[in-house]
Nucleic acid binder design. Structure first.
Length: 184
DNA sequence: CGCCTTTGACCCGCGC
DNA sequence: GCGCGGGTCAAAGGCG
C-alpha cells in the first residue's frame, strides 16, 4: 500500500481539505498534536496487544506500512500519516486521525448529523456516528475518545463528499490557500 | 416547522 | 446455528 500526503491522485482532495481545514480552523487544537493515521480500526487491535506504550508512540510506531511519520511534514508541524483504504465494502476511502482536543465536535467545514452512539468493546468510551447532512452525500464519520489518552479524539472519515464544503480550503503541498467566501 | 439529537431495536458479518 | 460486536435505523422529543 502506498501513502500519500498532499494531492496525489488516489488521494481525494476533499480529505486534504477536511483534515487540514479542521486542524487549522480549530483554535483549541495545537497543531503539533495533530496527526493522521490510516485505518485506525486496524490499529486498535495491534495496539491493544502491545505493551502499554504511550498512546502517541503506539500510533507513530506502527510501522506495518513502512511509513516514517516522524518525517516532518514541514507545513505547520503537522505529523501526518495517511493511507486511504479503498475498503472492500465499496463505501469509499477511509481516513482516521487523532487530535488533541477537549471538544469532540470539530468544525471541519461540513454539516454532520448524528445518527448513532455506541459503546464499543475496544474502548471504554462511547463512539459517535455522523453522516454528512448534505442531501445525496453519504460520507460518514466516527468520533471517539482515545482509549489510552482521554485528551485525544479519534475521528474517522469514510467516503468522499460529492459536493463542496461551504468552507473550502484549497491545498497544495507547498502552501495552503483559503478561499473562504466569508473572508474574501 | 424543519432539522437535529437521543435511544433502543434491529441488522449483519464473523468466529466458534 | 448461535452469540457477540459493531454499525444503522427510525420514532420521539428538543430546540432555534
Amino acid at each position: 500500500m502506498d501513502f500519500y500526503f498532499g494531492n496525489s491522485p488516489p488521494y481525494p482532495n476533499n480529505y486534504a481539505h477536511n483534515s487540514l481545514n479542521m486542524a487549522l480552523s480549530s483554535p483549541e487544537i495545537a497543531l503539533s498534536d495533530y496527526l493522521m493515521l490510516d485505518d485506525y480500526v486496524d490499529h486498535q487491535d495491534s495496539r491493544s496487544s502491545q505493551s502499554t506504550e504511550s498512546s502517541e508512540k503506539a500510533t507513530f510506531s506502527d510501522a506495518t506500512h513502512g511509513f516514517s511519520t516522524g518525517a516532518t511534514s514541514k507545513n505547520n508541524n503537522i505529523n501526518c500519516k495517511n493511507g486511504i483504504n479503498e475498503n472492500k465494502g465499496g463505501v469509499g476511502p477511509r481516513i482516521a486521525f487523532r487530535t488533541k482536543s477537549e471538544l469532540e465536535i470539530m468544525d471541519d467545514g461540513y454539516k454532520w448529523r448524528k445518527y448513532g452512539k455506541k459503546s464499543v468493546k475496544s474502548s471504554p468510551n462511547l463512539r459517535n456516528y455522523y453522516k454528512c447532512s448534505s442531501g445525496g452525500c453519504s460520507v460518514k464519520k466516527r468520533v471517539e475518545r482515545d482509549r489510552d489518552d482521554y485528551s485525544y479524539v479519534i475521528t474517522t472519515y469514510e467516503g468522499v463528499h460529492n459536493h463542496e464544503s461551504p468552507f473550502t480550503t484549497y491545498y497544495s503541498p507547498i502552501s495552503f490557500v483559503h478561499s473562504d467566501t466569508t473572508f474574501k
